[in-house]
Design a protein around this nucleic acid. Sequence first.
DNA 1: TTGTCATTTGACAACGTTGTCAGATATAAC
DNA 2: GTTATATCTGACAACGTTGTCAAATGACAA
Lengths: 330, 330
Amino acid sequence: MREVAALAKVSIKTVSRVVNGESGVSPRLTRRVTAASERLNYRHNLPASSLRRSDGRSATIGVVLEDVANPFASTLHRSIEDVAVPRGVLVFAGSSDEDGDRERRLVSAFASRRVDGLIIQPASHDHSYLLSERKAGCAIVFVDRPPKFFDADSVVTDNAAGVRRGVHHLIANGHRRIGYLGDLHTIDTARERYEGYCAELAEQKVVVDEKLVRLDLRGIEKAEAATRELVTSSRPPTALFTGQNFITIGAFRALRGLGLHKKVALVGFDDILLADLLEPGITVIAQDPAAIGRAAAELLFRRLDGDKSPSQTTVVRTRMIARGSGELRP
Amino acid sequence: MREVAALAKVSIKTVSRVVNGESGVSPRLTRRVTAASERLNYRHNLPASSLRRSDGRSATIGVVLEDVANPFASTLHRSIEDVAVPRGVLVFAGSSDEDGDRERRLVSAFASRRVDGLIIQPASHDHSYLLSERKAGCAIVFVDRPPKFFDADSVVTDNAAGVRRGVHHLIANGHRRIGYLGDLHTIDTARERYEGYCAELAEQKVVVDEKLVRLDLRGIEKAEAATRELVTSSRPPTALFTGQNFITIGAFRALRGLGLHKKVALVGFDDILLADLLEPGITVIAQDPAAIGRAAAELLFRRLDGDKSPSQTTVVRTRMIARGSGELRP
DNA sequence: TTGTCATTTGACAACGTTGTCAGATATAAC
DNA sequence: GTTATATCTGACAACGTTGTCAAATGACAA
């Protein structure tokens, strides 16, 4: 900047004014400064600028996702980017792998870089550690799951209602023995979904048979093994509800392997690319990750723009997509 | 930091030393300083630190991908993160949407934030604009596609060889009329893949019939429409080669819709989640995005660690996965 | 005690920028 | 030509940190 000022024969303050598009610089000097910046290939130093600036904003936010490569998370990521980038804000992203420690380490790394805001898909079970970040002026919004021991905005899916809808659908198709395959029970949404399953069965006066329930499944392989074991047991279920997309894939793979994919009904939580092309197509309770991400990012920026209203929880609805697997009759 | 120094009754320089783990601070003072930092909830300001620091490193890199939500790109992203985070380096990510202008704007935004390095999946067709970034000390590695008019490291897939392998496989299964469905011809890799198709046909003494070729397809819908039109023409192909994952999906969807999915052979470039569960399973030429990302990130950090050797191109091999669709006979 | 040397500590400037405020210049009115 | 006013411009300090270097302290031997 000093060099630009020297070449344009003005003070560095005038260069600063031009760079920031402040009013009150004569066209003549503006021209000279822009010419000099071009010639010297000057690039504004944003960290230095935000250091000096009164608001201290870095025009940067941090996003903690379960795994940036997971389809649900990466769609969230993209819709956050689509809100942030037009505002001149860049996005740091990191994966927690469902590990509370990694979540904290990422948040700490983001905070050291002075991000203006954080969007977190929680892995940890105690978010009180975020108090100091917020006190330091960092806005925080949770996605997919609500925070624990910490009051903050969140944007979540109506998990229980979605699962109830799917289970109801299976019951309406004549099923009574409906198996449930769920994700790690430490994950709140996994628990909520399981509770939705139980609640709907209770409402429909169907007794929950614990022999038909398999929880704490993580990944396609585990789900596949659990499904195989469940449907080959002595009193197998006639239908399955799977509580997460990889579990749905594992379950379908097992059913396919056993030649049962056109016999045992299946409804899965979360949509899956290509689910419509399988035989039968997989009936799912679809979330809307793009809507969740967009809502979270917009909420975050409202907070950064000074909205001080009480923290709010936005619930994004699910949608059932019937494709065949959920309409198989016992 | 000043407050911590005051509370610990030392100079801020001593606090700086403790924070950076420099040697030569007595255990007594170290204890006092850490206690004071904890009590005041002090958080090191990395941008300010890197401003003053002699190496000027921000411990930050920028990644420009086609779309962070695209499965190939998000896997790249994840494997880059896995190399960066253990080194204390955080990752900015952005989507170019295959638009050279967006790529340049993202790079410029990253540069303003003084990233130490860039990993770019190129959309632009002239990367000479990166000269000034490199002169400013920014390391640059290209992934998936090589740079244009710019000498830099790159990590790419052997596209032509992969396609030739797939086309060869179809010919070995008795096909002569093999259709080709390709992505935007402005994309280098799309062009390379098409050239691989032509080269293999030539090698096998099969004349390229332009009526069997559809290029510039972007997205599932366009691919689906093109496939439908192609296979219902008067002299349809007996096999298809699809040059990209969404095109493969669109083609399969069209074949399914016409009841031809067990008649017309199909080999696709890029693996697809669930491809093994379709009927028939889809035979693909699989890339290894995780290996590409890892190699690119490691190369970037070698450059940042001072490796000054001439720029290199790393070629990552493809692998054919036969699942049924590519083994259908005419 | 004194002198020597190694170790530990702190004062100060600087990184690249912007906020503050005073000074310079141009414009208009008399 | 003078004054009043509006418009531009620049000198300087400060943001939170670290590099430099000199000063203070401690350990040890004579």
